[in-house]
Design a binder for these strands. Structure first.
Lengths: 157, 157
DNA sequence: TTAGGTGCAAATCTTTTGCAGAAAG
DNA sequence: CTTTCTGCAAAAGATTTGCACCTAA
């Protein structure tokens, strides 16, 4: 974890930014909750536990900065709040989301399935892909199990 | 166009909703701008040309209603505003977006490239896809041309 | 030392809601 | 008639910004 913080610190400094205690605390929260998709408010509350004096505006400013540096990715599930995902170390951000329309859960697929499509885009549309976002909406395996064993015969929708 | 309005009118009525002049004007705007991804504000301004007395809240309420009826799809490109796409008559909504990080333009690909992936999801993850969203971020063909002929050698970012 | 950061509060922006009056079926 | 709608204005949330004061490098 220290190594990752150091690396990000260098990224910041190479662009003339400073690693302040507030930014470091924010980074640690993101690292400790890598599996989650935290909103700015979520991050704020978690950071407050470590650094109670931090302001919400600083969290927003930090997340925006980290977003510009491609350290985190800002995502939007349509629930009115932006969420922030720490990016993995690989060059691109290759993961997809499975969003269940029944229970609202979200799983991730940490593989990239779009390589061939991106080549095709470059060839056919002269569009050079830098990033992508792929979300699937449907029924997750948990809900499918539940629907089948649900004695009262409830069905989604 | 009248046929499509009639069809939606029936959809509304079968659920106990009324087709008011405001709703009809909103629908017409959506039909006339099917290629665009209008925000609620966009729709509001266009509807105002036909029905100046309409209120923004009514537009929001109408769009939400049409969304529930699956007449439009509410989408979110992460720019802080929800946008609304008229759904095509086909069962699924198969199109992808090419969003240019340089000029902000957005093109559409009206083909579905994900069929095989969706089958794989069902097989490997037991996840049944009902819809998907695929956005690519990168440099569009227009900006690539512009960058190459730009005498002052400006580069994006 | 000094450019960049911070906290706070106020401002902004999108979207939602309460309500009294209007109108579709 | 009665239930659903509408417009307006106010409210609610999320995010951004102005500003005077700090602080990391």
């Amino acid at each position: 974890m220290e190594a990752r913080i150091d690396k990000i610190k260098q990224q910041l400094q190479s662009q003339g930014y400073k690693l302040t205690p507030q930014r470091e605390a924010t980074l640690r929260v993101l690292l400790e909750n890598e599996e989650d998709h935290l909103s700015a408010e979520d991050v704020f509350m978690l950071v407050k536990e470590k650094a109670p004096e931090i302001g919400l505006a600083t969290v927003y400013r930090t997340l925006e900065l980290l977003s510009e540096l491609h350290v985190v990715e800002k995502i939007n599930f349509g629930d009115g709040v932006a969420r922030y995902d720490l990016r993995t170390d690989t060059a691109k951000h290759h993961h997809h989301h499975l969003i269940c329309v029944q229970c609202g859960s979200m799983d991730e697929i940490r593989e990239d399935w779009l390589g061939p499509l991106e080549e095709r885009l470059d060839r056919e549309f002269n569009f050079t892909v830098m990033d992508h976002r792929l979300d699937f909406h449907g029924i997750c395996h948990r809900c499918k199990d539940k629907n089948n064993t649900d004695g009262n015969g409830n069905r989604p929708e």
